[in-house]
């Protein structure tokens, strides 16, 4: 054993002095450096993209952000004035969307983690459906919302309650919010499921062994133990919804409305769509440039703040789990 080990050591030492081997090892070193450099520069490009994007938007938009800009209506064919209706519409949209998506998603996640057996066909089918929902292009949600909520549900409602008078059978904030909630549902389900799974099995067993029913265990042990995870899911969903435009294109967003939405059957303005409108539909694109930058900055800050709070919450959950 020791003899052969010594021989090997000698072999290596001799090889180090062999010129051919030295060239080979030099080549390997060069190759290593090149690869490291290549991977590093790709990573730097990513950072550069973020920095450039933020800098351009920030410099272009920072002077635009005034109290006036945030709280007033657009004026003069949207070439002047503020973006208040778009902020208000975005907020209302994400609130209504959360009211629909969060309870529905949470209940589904509770079914999947607490009730369904891992191997059951129902659970597998639900998981497959959730994964599928997550990869459907958002424009298709918009078309679905138009076809299902507006043309089918809305028209049926008008026929049944209003004698065919057109009220619900057209785009409005209710249908837009529901369409958006379908889009964000997978995000909610997956993050709530993850949160529920962080509650140890031993705690469920402890509760059941004390004579608690399954529902008491879920309500008093599992949900309180995962509440921050459920909130993270909600925030991520809201942040995703706040930035999306495609699902609401056909279902409720307006180019311009002179009044704030006062009823669920009203149309509304949204930040993301407002940017699109000003860059492509405006009579004078150059004149709207500062407003475009301002709106973009507001939207960016909004989603950034939402995501950042989700990250903090998630970090706190992980920490708690380790403790």
């Amino acid at each position: 054993m020791i003899e052969s080990f010594n021989k090997n050591i000698k072999g290596i030492l001799i090889n180090e002095k062999n010129p051919e081997e030295m060239i080979k090892s030099f080549k390997n070193n060069i190759k290593g450096i090149l690869i490291e450099g290549l991977t590093l520069s790709s990573a730097i490009i990513i950072i550069a993209i973020v920095v450039v994007m933020f800098t351009v938007i920030f410099i272009g938009g920072k002077d635009q952000i005034t109290w006036e800009f945030l709280t007033s209506f657009p004026e003069d064919g949207m070439t002047k004035g503020g973006i208040f209706p778009a902020i208000y519409g975005t907020a209302l949209l994400v609130i209504l969307m959360s009211i629909a998506a969060v309870p529905f998603g949470t209940i589904t996640a509770i079914y999947l983690t607490e009730y369904a057996k891992e191997s059951s066909i129902i659970a597998k089918t639900i998981r497959f459906a959730v994964r599928t929902l997550a990869v459907i292009p958002s424009i298709i949600y918009g078309l679905f919302g138009l076809g299902f909520f507006i043309k089918f549900v809305g028209t049926q409602m008008d026929n049944a309650f209003l004698g065919g008078e057109l009220k619900w059978g057209q785009p409005n904030i209710l249908w837009a919010s529901l369409t958006m909630s379908l889009l964000t549902l997978p995000v909610v389900i997956v993050s709530v499921e993850e949160a529920l799974k962080t509650v140890p099995k031993e705690l469920r067993a402890a509760s059941l062994a004390l004579g608690a029913t399954k529902w008491q265990t879920i309500w008093k042990v599992v949900i309180p133990g995962s509440i921050s995870g459920i909130m993270t899911g909600t925030i991520l969903a809201v942040s995703r919804g706040a930035g999306e435009v495609a699902p609401i294109l056909f279902t409720g967003v307006a180019y311009y409305v002179a009044t704030l939405p006062a009823s669920l059957s009203d149309q509304f303005m949204v930040l993301g769509y407002h940017i699109y409108v000003m860059t492509t539909q405006s009579a004078n694109v150059d004149q709207t440039m500062p407003i475009q930058f301002g709106t973009t900055l507001v939207l960016l800050m909004l989603t950034f703040i939402l995501n950042f709070s989700a990250i903090i919450l998630r970090y706190r959950i992980r920490k708690k789990k380790i403790d």
Partner: peptide, 19 residues
Amino acid sequence: VVTLRKKVGMVFQKSNPFA
């Protein structure tokens, strides 16, 4: 089962207090 478990309590290997 719920009534049974009230009558027959259980202490586990790993202590598992609620948070």
